[in-house]
Design a protein around this nucleic acid. Structure first.
Lengths: 174, 174
DNA sequence: CCTATTTATGACCGAACGGTCTTTTATTAG
DNA sequence: CTAATAAAAGACCGTTCGGTCATAAATAGG
């Protein structure tokens, strides 16, 4: 997963994966089928563990808005650094030409959109967010900005500016 | 340029480039040096022509905000479709491991940041934008959202939602 | 028209690619 | 301890990769 995350699908060779895992080609093929299947498993593992870790920071004692802030900052932290976000990386590199990857990413995206939409709706209901727009639209705005940061942090935006921009966006909704 | 734009650097072979240009390997190497140099030229051509076409839609008869809207919609249109934005694609695929690409993209990014910052400042000065935040921060917000849309439009966001989200962002600043 | 220089061509190169297969080594069950 | 099973290893396969080079076609100058 780390190899695919750091270098992408095409630029990662089976030799890289062998060096990274300490295993040898035959073993990997026996265990995973082929490179593409191995990548799909790695992508799913990334998405599942990232989602699990992100939702893990939620606390019942927090207000909806506090939870939203914590989640957004967690996502920022995960995507900061040179590797960025593996889902965004894969969407950019593979989604247009790889139906399996595209379908998987659409699933992960919907999962996250639903979660974020619900959090925004709760923060609106609690009165912490004064912005009136539909939660779905705000969630899309939030996801797109997060995604853009995850892309730009790889080349032309610092992780501090990334985090600050996300917090400013939430502030503008209060 | 179209081949690199559509498939990225690693996934585009010299054979693809031959088929795409109608030329043969030797001619390409003689004219451009190697694959990497050819890619750099294609990336620069993309950035320059995209910037030129985008600034071309500006009109002195428009108000600053109208011009900002036109520019944002033009960028949206250019990045919609399966190929997305070649600069975002390259930043995600190559920037962390390719200093030359990273430096070039930082240059293009600064150029765009300056232009957008100035447009926002003008729209604030004219009173069309009521939002008080520093133009630089708003520009970064705009660029990140545009970038995220350019990434997600390749997999899980429609071009209509992309354009609508960008217009909503500008509306929220009025 | 003939020569000189440029430009395009396709055969060719070593290396690395993804993937397979047989042999050897651990591991487990009886 | 032995036999059956699973897993790891590395040699090996055809293909494609980026890149080179000698040759052939085309262009330009005298």
């Amino acid at each position: 997963m780390d190899a695919f995350w750091a270098k992408g699908y095409e630029a990662t060779s089976m030799a890289d994966l062998c060096a990274c895992t300490g295993l040898h080609k035959g073993s990997l093929y026996q265990a995973f089928g082929d490179k593409h299947k191995l990548f799909m498993d790695a992508l799913k593992h990334y998405a599942d563990s990232e989602f699990h870790e992100t939702t893990a920071v939620l606390r019942e004692s927090n207000t909806p808005l506090e939870n939203l802030r914590v989640v957004v900052n967690k996502i920022c932290e995960d995507a900061s650094g040179e590797k960025g976000c593996m889902m965004i990386n894969s969407m950019v590199e593979l989604a247009p030409h790889d139906p399996a990857v595209k379908a998987a990413l659409q699933g992960f995206g919907q999962q996250r959109m639903h979660a974020v939409t619900e959090m925004i709706a709760m923060a609106q209901a609690s009165g912490e967010l004064s912005v009136k727009k539909e939660p779905q639209k705000l969630a899309l705005q939030l996801m797109m900005t997060l995604a853009g940061g995850a892309a730009m942090v790889k080349g032309s935006v610092t992780s501090e500016d990334y985090a600050e921009t996300m917090n400013d966006l939430l502030d503008s909704w209060v």
